[in-house]
């Protein structure tokens, strides 16, 4: 059992949990993820590691409940425990593998959108601990959805916050901030973008213009997370990669975005039906297409 020692609501839709998992905390690195599952009927949910404390033996996860399984996680409180919490999965971020000289030669730009702030944070923090201040752009649709601004400010070089609707700080999407920074004469030679797939795609189109090598982190559909099922396969150049063992980070310029986006939609109908059934509980009477109810 994996005890939840902290539960916190970060924004109107995003939650944080700090979970006791000493073996995972001993071995994990920025860029890796875990799989969490609760209840016999529960689904295995992959979530990127947002922070870790090797001494306390804890892992911090941040998630936005969308399906039935992640909504059920919210029923758990501090002191409760997850049945299963396994990891670390995937390869550590490229930055961990870089030599000191390589790191010194890099000018980093991190772009985080939506819940993508969570996986970006440990990388920026890791660089900070190694004496490097990376520039970070955080984008949110609106002010209410923004989280981790203060934490990020503590570890980032320059932090730029933007909201699509202009309700807080800069108005616009993350790519407009990139364009503005480049127009100001900023130089970057390593970009990491994590967020909704559509955001990552447009970041890549933008950084490509400026010839900035860019890494994205993918979270496709998966089951086991150890390379066994192949559900997370993606086309990178001419190669088929499994995000769970070859990723989750990939060089975005070789990436097949159209395919990856369509693959992520596969279970949309089933998930929607299950969610409807879950939300309506005993009052559920149709609309899901499964139960024979009307509509």
């Amino acid at each position: 059992m994996y005890k939840i020692i902290k539960k916190e609501q970060l924004s109107s839709v995003v939650w944080l949990m700090e979970v006791e998992a000493p073996l995972v905390a001993r071995h994990c690195e920025p860029g890796q993820f875990i799989i969490v599952k609760h209840g016999d009927e529960g689904e295995r949910i992959p979530l990127t590691i947002c922070d870790y404390d090797r001494e306390k033996g804890t892992i911090t996860i941040v998630f936005q409940p969308v399906g039935v399984a992640t909504n059920k996680f919210l029923d758990l409180n501090e002191g409760d425990a997850f049945d299963d919490f396994v990891g670390p999965l995937g390869r550590p971020s490229d930055i961990i593998e870089m030599s000191e000289e390589e790191l010194a030669g890099k000018k980093f730009l991190f772009v985080a959108g939506g819940v993508g702030v969570a996986p970006v944070y440990p990388q920026v923090k890791w660089l900070h601990e190694h004496g490097i201040g990376a520039d970070v752009i955080i984008g949110a649709r609106t002010k209410d959805l923004l989280f981790f601004e203060e934490q990020m400010r503590e570890v980032a070089g320059n932090l730029y916050v933007t909201t699509d609707d202009g309700s807080y700080m800069h108005k616009g999407v993350v790519t407009t901030v990139i364009d503005e920074l480049m127009a100001e004469g900023k130089e970057y030679n390593h970009c990491v973008a994590i967020g909704p797939m559509i955001m990552m795609k447009f970041v890549c189109l933008t950084t490509q213009k400026y010839n900035i090598p860019t890494i994205v982190s993918m979270n496709p559909i998966m089951v086991d997370g150890t390379g066994m099922c192949g559900a997370c396969r993606l086309s990178v150049g001419d190669e088929i990669s499994f995000a769970c063992v070859d990723g989750a980070e990939f060089d975005c310029f070789k990436f097949n975005w159209a395919e990856a986006m369509k693959r992520s939609q596969l279970y949309k109908t089933e998930e929607g039906r299950a969610m409807l059934k879950y939300q309506e509980g005993d009052t559920h009477h149709g609309g899901c297409g499964n139960c024979g109810g009307e509509n």
């Binding site: 089951v223 086991d224 066994m228 099922c229 192949g230 559900a231 396969r233 993606l234 086309s235 088929i240 395919e259 369509k262 693959r263 939609q265 596969l266």
Partner: peptide, 13 residues
Amino acid sequence: NANGVFSANEYLT
């Protein structure tokens, strides 16, 4: 990689 193509491993798991 089309939607609807699975490994037997995934389908059975």
